[in-house]
Every structure is written in structure tokens, then in C-alpha cells.
Amino acid sequence: MTTAPAPLAARRARRPGTAGKRARRALLNLAGLLVALVTLFPVLWMISTAFKPPTELFSLTPHPIPLHPTLDNFRHVIDGTGVTDSSNNPIPYWTFLRNSLFVTIVAVAVSSLLALLAAIALARFKFRFRTTYLIMLLIVQMLPQQALVIALYIDFRSLNLLDSLTGLIAVYTAFALPVTIWMLRSFAASVPKELEEAAAIDGAGAWTVFWRILFPLVTPGLVATSVFAFIFAYNEFVFALTFLGVDTPRFTLPLFVQFFQGHSTSGTDWGAIMAASTLFTIPVLAFFLIIQRRLASGLVAGAVKG
């Protein structure tokens, strides 16, 4: 079609609408390109800044691509000269990564398990208060965390759960639950009931039906929902900020990134902040790209807090 001989192409162009159509298509593509560039710009700028030496950060003509790329910012962040513990020893990046991963993985595992049980109850049984429970989940999801954090701070203080990752795990488990249950419920409901019935007729008990039939079929859903729980817990800021205070060795990654900005000693070291933020963000974005397809359907299936 594109390689049509010239006279034909000319005739086509003369036909009313065709030229206009092509112009429209070009205009749309241009708009798309513009949207994509504006959207990507902040993330690209973060990455580019992370590789810039200090002289280029504040240069009179900023370049989108570093002229003399350097790994100094990353080295600075990973060696931990930015954040120190109470006796002024630098804390390396790995400490915060370990804290974040520990909290996130435990919280996701526990909340996925609890949510799976609840989702089966909501998808497979009819009982009183079922609708009430679903509405409760919707409402609980919307309660402002910066409000609840006051009461949780007071409770955890008396339970000695402040300045500990255990407290964070408990809170992340709880706050990941409503969304996880909500999404898993639709996954569990989409497993055909006939399969379980057939297994039951063949003599399988409730446990076997669950373990051999329902669980394998819900696993993809479990993976998708635990990704959401993972991202929530990995990114969470308010509770970590409040519970951990100045207990720097227990900081999670978001606190680490923010601490870098708020507490730098000699002016704001933007190169280091962007390097820290790059190290923190890139895994999440990689995750997003991998699960892109599922994400789009999940987004629509259940309202997910961003």
C-alpha cells in the first residue's frame, strides 16, 4: 500500500478525506509521542541526574544526557556516607534494602494467606452479612492513614512495637488486606464450581478440593494481588516515618530516600538523592513492566490505591 506507484498515490491524495486522514493520523501520533515524553521525562531525568558529577548538576546549560557520566553518586549511596546511625557510623544501602525486603515479604506472605481464606469465604459461600462485609472492605480501604497513625502510634508505644520492624509488618499486613481480599475474591469466583464438585464426587474432602483444585487455579490471581500488596508495602511512607522516628538502622527504603533529602549536612546532594531514588524505584518499575498485562485488568477489576 505504501509502495503504490506515484500517480496512484497522487490520485489517492486527491480523493477527499485521505490526505486529511493521514494528517490526522500524524497529528495523533505526534500527540501520543508528546504525552509519552512528558510522562517519561521525570523518571528519565532522575536516572540521568544520578549519573551526573556535581559540576554538571548546577551547570548553566543542563544536558539531558550526562557529559561525563560517573558512578560516584551510586557509590556514595551504597557506601552510606549520607545516612548515619546514632554513633555516626555510615549505614550502607544494603541495610535499608534488607529492612524493606524483610518487612515487605513477610507482610505480603501473611496478608496473601489471610486474604485467600477470606476470599474463598466471600466467593464460595452465601452467608448473612456477606454484602455488609464487602462494603466494609470498600470503606476500610478509604480511611486516611495519616489519621489512623495517631492511634496506632499510641497503641504500639504501649505494646513496645515502635522502633521495630514487627510493628510495620503488622500494619502493612492489615492495610494490604482489604484490596487483596477484594481482588482475590473475583479471581476465586472465576474458578468454575463444577471442578470442585467433580472432585468432591470423586471422594475428595474439603481440604483436598482446596489444595488440589482451587489453590492451583487461584495461584495466578494470588501472584497478581501479591504484587499489589508488595508495591504498597515497599512504597509505604507514613507509618515507617512515624514508627521508626530517628532509628536510622531500621529505616526502610522510602525513609532512606526522604531522609537523604531532609537531613543532608552540606546542602542538598541531589546527585545522591537521585541515585538513591533510582535504586529504590527501578525494581518497582521493572516489576510493573513485567506484569503490565495483568496490571491493566487488575486496575479495572478493583480500585487500587496509588
Binding site: L40, I231, N235, V257, S277, L285, F287
Partner: peptide
Amino acid sequence: LLAWGTPAVS
């Protein structure tokens, strides 16, 4: 999607 996925703190 990348903009949406960027953590709030970052």
C-alpha cells in the same frame, strides 16, 4: 504505567 508505578516518595 511507569509514571503510575513510581513510588510516591521517589
